[in-house]
Nucleic acid binder design. Sequence first.
DNA 1: TCCATATTTCCACATTTCTCGAATCATCGG
DNA 2: CCGATGATTCGAGAAATGTGGAAATATGGA
Lengths: 106, 106
Amino acid sequence: MQPDHVIRALSALAQEHRLAAFRLLVQAGEQGLAAGVLADRLDVPPSSMSFHLAQLANAGLVTQRRESRSIIYSADYAAMNGLMGYLTENCCGGVPCAADAGEATA
Amino acid sequence: MQPDHVIRALSALAQEHRLAAFRLLVQAGEQGLAAGVLADRLDVPPSSMSFHLAQLANAGLVTQRRESRSIIYSADYAAMNGLMGYLTENCCGGVPCAADAGEATA
DNA sequence: TCCATATTTCCACATTTCTCGAATCATCGG
DNA sequence: CCGATGATTCGAGAAATGTGGAAATATGGA
């Protein structure tokens, strides 16, 4: 993963609505969630949601597929793994930062 | 780590110069690097560097200490661990994203 | 075809972020 | 005290980002 791509991924996640949306998509799993459902759950107008989802898609963190009238977004776990890998390699001194990251809620 | 703090940390890293600076600081280890050295290495004017370092410090990702006329910045590994922990817990579906993240260069 | 639903695109506007020279502040040596 | 060095703060302008209504684009059902 190139630095340029890393920046885009970090930028994509560095926003309240987008981080929340991505979390919901991760929870939803392969099945994903429709754009409208995300907009509803996050209480964001459809056009704004669309804008944010486009950013996540541009960063490669989510994929989209049409299903009838809905467009379903899903988290791209591989992309997230790539980001985590880069951060571990380049920003944690090689030490396995998240290996024992159980204290996330502490 | 609260979502608000996570956003600030991600925002801090989501910028070319700041990501580069943080990587240098991680490489430098405990010893850290002076603000001027970072500005030199990254070819950024001192005032701009200062601005970016302030953002990293605000996000809690770096610490600073004065050493004679220089101000030395160091990466805060614990803070980075906290961020990685949050991402692993909330954005990777619990799966240990970076556990086998050796393919970071792939 | 016509209508309703789901989403995106377009657009203007507000806000935030980035940039960097100049001025200021802090520390050291003489 | 003075001058030099290292860094931050200030201020103004440029650029990028976020917001949300209105219009446009798909899809499906009657």
